[in-house]
């Protein structure tokens, strides 16, 4: 099934109010360095293209770049790592989002129950942690709030290791936005917001992948 690029995926989500990092999609190492200077260090650089789904597995993510030289070098490496079947690629330079807690949120379509929204613990470890909760679209706000309440390890959502309590309202906004997006876009088959990092108490989708029919 065709996927949207990370940049396009995030644009669609941001249009529904999902918080994403400040980012720029560029095509050369020089542009990457300039974008990083504009965004403020440290930054993250990733290879971005419509068919690139598993960046971490392919080593296409560079975290914690702290100056223009490092960004330029990373961008050159990433562009060199592109394969012909990746299609038209660019480098996505984004503000590095810091946070000790990672969640996963998503949307999918079930053959029996139709579109649903998911929330879970663990971010990139979510499939191993397997603490996930589901509700059907459309989600009322109260449904989103109850999803958050249903997560195990509620203490993880309280103030934790110097980070403030998770803003439950902002998290509920993300879930309702996914529900609204699923209802508005029948061609949207799935969405992964993974990880959804809790940064200063607020959720930020640092990676996102939308799959279209």
């Amino acid at each position: 099934m065709p996927t949207l690029s990370e940049a396009e995926s995030k644009q669609k989500l941001a249009a529904r109010g999902v918080p994403v990092p400040a980012e720029a999609l560029v095509s050369t190492p020089e542009e990457a360095a300039a974008a990083a200077a504009r965004l403020g260090f440290p930054v993250v650089a990733k290879l971005c293209g419509p068919t690139i789904a598993h960046k971490t597995e392919r080593g296409l993510v560079r975290l914690g770049l702290t100056d223009e030289g490092a960004v330029e070098a990373a961008a050159a490496d990433l562009l060199a790592a592109a394969r012909p079947d990746d299609g038209e690629v660019g480098v996505l330079v984004g503000q590095m989002v810091r946070g000790g807690r990672e969640l996963i949120a998503g949307m999918g379509r079930d053959p029996q129950f139709g579109p649903y929204v998911m929330l879970g613990l663990g971010g990139i470890l979510a499939e191993a942690v397997a603490e996930v909760v589901f509700r059907l679209v459309p989600l009322a706000r109260v449904d989103a709030e109850e999803m958050i309440e249903q997560l195990p390890a509620q203490r993880l959502l309280a103030a934790f290791r110097g980070e403030p309590e998770v803003d439950r309202s902002a998290l509920a906004d993300v879930l309702v936005a996914l529900s609204d997006l699923a209802a508005a876009e029948p061609r949207l088959m799935s969405a992964d917001l993974n990880p959804l990092i809790i940064s200063d108490g607020r959720p930020v989708a640092v990676d996102a992948l939308l799959e279209m029919a």
């Binding site: 998503g106 949307m107 079930d110 449904d143 799935s190 969405a191 799959e211």
Partner: peptide
């Protein structure tokens, strides 16, 4: 079988359970 992480986590029982709670 699913290509998305969300889809892979959406077992029949989990979705059913969420439906019942909702």
């Amino acid at each position: 079988a699913a290509s998305s992480h969300t889809g892979a986590l959406a077992t029949e029982d989990r979705v059913f359970d969420g439906m019942l709670r909702q």
